[in-house]
Nucleic acid binder design. Structure first.
Lengths: 233, 233
DNA sequence: GTCTATAACCGGATAGAC
DNA sequence: GTCTATCCGGTTATAGAC
C-alpha cells in the first residue's frame, strides 16, 4: 500500500523536488548571474545530487523556461487593474507595456543571457519556438484582451491580427530594453509611449473604409510571413 | 640577424598561423556546425597545439568575429555591380539586401549560433557592441552609398539618418532569415521586396515639404533612442 | 619578446548502480 | 527517483623554444 497511500490533491511525489530545484536556480541566477551559477551549486542548494537535477531538467537552459513562465504570471497580475481601469486602446497598450518593464526590472541583469537564444531558431528558448508556445500564446491572448475590451471600433480583419502584431511589438520593446542602461529605463519608456501613439495612429488610419484594399494586402503579407516564422502559432 | 631578416610586405611571422586557424575553424563550422566543432579539432586541423589557438583567439566565440568580417567582405563585392548599375533607390536597396541573402546562404545552418548573442548586450558578438563597430560602421557606409548615389532627392535631415535606419532594417531582415526555412528563402525575399517598397513610400511621403514638422520629430526620436542602443556608433 | 606545447582545471552533461 | 563516478570540451597556467 505504499505507492497508493497518498491522497489525491497533494503535490505529487517528486513534484516538490522539481519546484525546489527551479526555485533555487532562479534565486541563484538572480543573485550571481546565469554563467556564474553552476549546476552543482543549484543541486547543492536544492539538497539533491547533480544527476538528479538533470532528471528533472534536460539542461541548464531548460531551467529558463520556468523563468519565462514565472515573470509572465507576474506580468498578468500587474495588468489586471490596468485593463479594468483603462478603456482607451492606447492607454491600455501603454499600461501593459510599462507593466512589462516594471515586472521584468528585477531580472534585467540576467535577461541578456536568457534572451540569448532569441535569434537561434533551433533553441527551445527562442520566443518563436514551439517550446515557448504556451507562454507566447498566453501573451498574445493578453494583447487580445487589450484590443477586444477597448472602446474603439476596429474592422474585423484587423482586430483579428492586431494581437499578434502587438506581441511582436512587445518583443521589439524587450530587445531594446535589454540594451537600455538609462536610469529608470527612461529610454525604453519613451520608446513605449511614442510607438504606442504611432500604433494608434496607424490603426485609426488603417480603419478608414477607404483604406480597405491597402489594409487587406498588408494583412495578407502578415499572414504569409507569419507562417514561416512561428510554425507553432 | 634572425628577427630582422624578413622583408617588409611579407605576411608577418605568426600572421600566417592566425589565418590558418581561422580558415580551419570556419571550414569546420560550416561542415559540422559550431557546437560539434571542438577547439581541439580546430587546432589539430590547423596543425597547432590547443593552447596556441587560444594565443591567437581569446575564445571560441571570438573566431566568429572573423566570420562576420569575411561574409561582409563578400557582401561588399557582390554589391559593387548592383550599385554601379541601379540608380533608383528601391532597386539599389533590394539589390543590396538580396545580395546579403545570397552571400550569407552558405552559412545559414550555423548563423543561428553565430547570432545567438545578438540579444546579449554584454557579448562582444552583438551587432550593437563596440567589438562589432568596425563591421557595423562599414555596413552603414554601404547603406550610405545606396542612398547618396541614388537618383532621388531627399531632405538633408532624412538623408543623414537614413543609412542607419536602413542598417537596422537589414538587421531585422537577417533575424527573419535566420528563422526562414522556405526553399530559396522565398519568404525572406518576399519580405525584402515588400518592405523595400514600403521604405520607398515612407521616404517619399516624408520628403513632402508639408511633412517637415512630423519628420523632424520622428528623426529626433530616432536620435534620442540611438544614443542608448549603440554607444559606439 | 614572440610564439608553441603540455598539463591541468572547471563545469555541463551522461551512465548506470541502487 | 536518487545517487556516484565519469566523460568531454572550453579554458587557463605555465614552462619553455625560437
Amino acid at each position: 500500500m505504499s505507492p497508493a497511500k497518498k491522497d489525491a490533491g497533494a503535490p505529487k511525489k517528486g513534484e516538490r523536488t522539481r519546484a525546489k530545484i527551479l526555485d533555487t536556480a532562479l534565486a541563484l541566477f538572480q543573485e550571481h548571474g546565469y554563467e556564474a551559477t553552476t549546476m552543482r551549486r543549484i543541486a547543492e542548494g536544492a539538497g539533491v545530487a547533480l544527476g538528479n537535477a538533470y532528471y528533472y531538467f534536460e539542461s541548464k537552459e531548460h531551467l529558463i523556461q520556468g523563468f519565462y513562465a514565472k515573470t509572465h504570471v507576474e506580468h498578468l497580475a500587474a495588468c489586471e487593474p490596468i485593463l479594468a481601469r483603462e478603456k482607451d486602446l492606447v492607454a491600455r497598450l501603454k499600461g501593459v507595456l510599462h507593466a512589462k518593464v516594471d515586472t521584468a526590472e528585477p531580472y534585467h541583469r540576467i535577461s541578456g543571457v536568457l534572451f540569448k537564444s532569441a535569434a537561434d531558431p533551433k533553441s527551445p528558448l527562442s520566443p518563436f519556438s514551439s517550446a515557448s508556445a504556451p507562454v507566447r500564446t498566453d501573451a498574445i491572448e493578453l494583447m487580445r484582451r487589450v484590443v477586444d475590451e477597448s472602446d474603439g471600433r476596429l474592422p474585423k480583419d484587423l482586430a483579428e491580427r492586431l494581437p499578434e502584431m502587438l506581441w511582436l511589438h512587445e518583443m521589439a520593446i524587450i530587445l531594446f530594453w535589454l540594451h537600455d542602461e538609462s536610469p529608470g529605463r527612461a529610454r525604453t519608456r519613451h520608446l513605449i509611449d511614442r510607438t504606442a501613439d504611432l500604433v494608434a495612429k496607424l490603426v485609426s488610419v488603417a480603419s478608414f473604409p477607404l483604406m480597405k484594399p491597402l489594409r487587406t494586402s498588408a494583412l495578407e503579407l502578415f499572414d504569409e510571413l507569419k507562417h514561416d516564422a512561428t510554425p507553432g502559432a
